[in-house]
Amino acid sequence: MPHVASATIVSTDRNYLHHIDAGHFAMTTDEPAKLGGQGSAPAPFDYHLASLAACTAITLRMYAERKGWNLGEFRAELRLDRDEDGKLHVQRTLHSDQPLTDEQWQRPLEIVANTPVTKAMREGVGIASVRGDMTASS
């Protein structure tokens, strides 16, 4: 199976603040103060939406470049809500500073419905957990 991405997270001594290495990028995550964190970094669901927003923008920009479209400044706004049954829902709103007709908007809306991250979130991803041993030598 081809490797797609990797990430490692390490806890700190500050409530829910953690350090993440994703590829060769360093990030931090925390929970809001109302949930017992410091509110000092994006929370896990912030990263969840950010990954979808990034994939949306990159995929649409790639498509526009291949087609010779001028999207100008493109923006995607994402919001995550939980309904009365506890199910999560994402509302994704797309904007362009270019004057696009309803017909021109149809294709970008179809494209973003099928980005790789959209599909992974919509269809689900298999997750397996195993026990590691931090005392084992490398």
Score class of each variant (00 low, 15 high):
5 A>D: 12
6 S>C: 11
8 T>D: 12
14 R>T: 12
15 N>A: 15
16 Y>K: 04
16 Y>R: 05
17 L>C: 06
18 H>Q: 13
20 I>C: 04
22 A>W: 00
24 H>D: 15
24 H>E: 14
24 H>S: 14
25 F>S: 13
27 M>S: 06
27 M>R: 05
28 T>Q: 15
30 D>N: 07
31 E>G: 02
32 P>Y: 08
34 K>R: 14
37 G>A: 08
37 G>P: 00
43 A>Y: 03
44 P>N: 04
44 P>T: 02
45 F>M: 15
46 D>W: 05
46 D>Y: 06
47 Y>R: 02
48 H>K: 07
51 S>E: 03
53 A>T: 09
54 A>R: 04
54 A>V: 06
55 C>Y: 01
56 T>M: 01
56 T>E: 01
59 T>L: 06
59 T>S: 11
61 R>Q: 12
61 R>H: 12
61 R>D: 14
65 E>C: 08
68 G>R: 05
69 W>A: 06
69 W>K: 07
71 L>W: 00
71 L>E: 00
72 G>M: 10
72 G>L: 08
73 E>R: 13
74 F>D: 01
75 R>T: 12
75 R>H: 09
76 A>F: 01
76 A>K: 00
77 E>G: 07
78 L>Q: 02
78 L>N: 03
79 R>I: 10
81 D>T: 09
83 D>E: 10
87 K>W: 11
88 L>F: 13
92 R>I: 06
93 T>A: 12
94 L>K: 01
94 L>M: 06
96 S>G: 05
96 S>H: 02
97 D>Q: 13
98 Q>P: 03
99 P>F: 11
99 P>L: 15
100 L>I: 07
102 D>T: 14
103 E>M: 11
104 Q>H: 07
105 W>V: 10
106 Q>P: 01
112 V>N: 02
113 A>W: 02
113 A>V: 02
114 N>M: 08
114 N>D: 13
115 T>A: 03
115 T>L: 00
118 T>Q: 12
119 K>M: 09
120 A>R: 01
120 A>L: 10
120 A>Q: 05
121 M>W: 05
121 M>T: 05
123 E>K: 08
123 E>L: 10
125 V>H: 06
125 V>A: 12
125 V>Y: 03
126 G>D: 15
126 G>A: 15
127 I>T: 10
129 S>V: 14
131 R>D: 09
131 R>F: 08
134 M>F: 11
134 M>T: 14
135 T>R: 10
138 S>K: 12
138 S>V: 14
138 S>N: 15
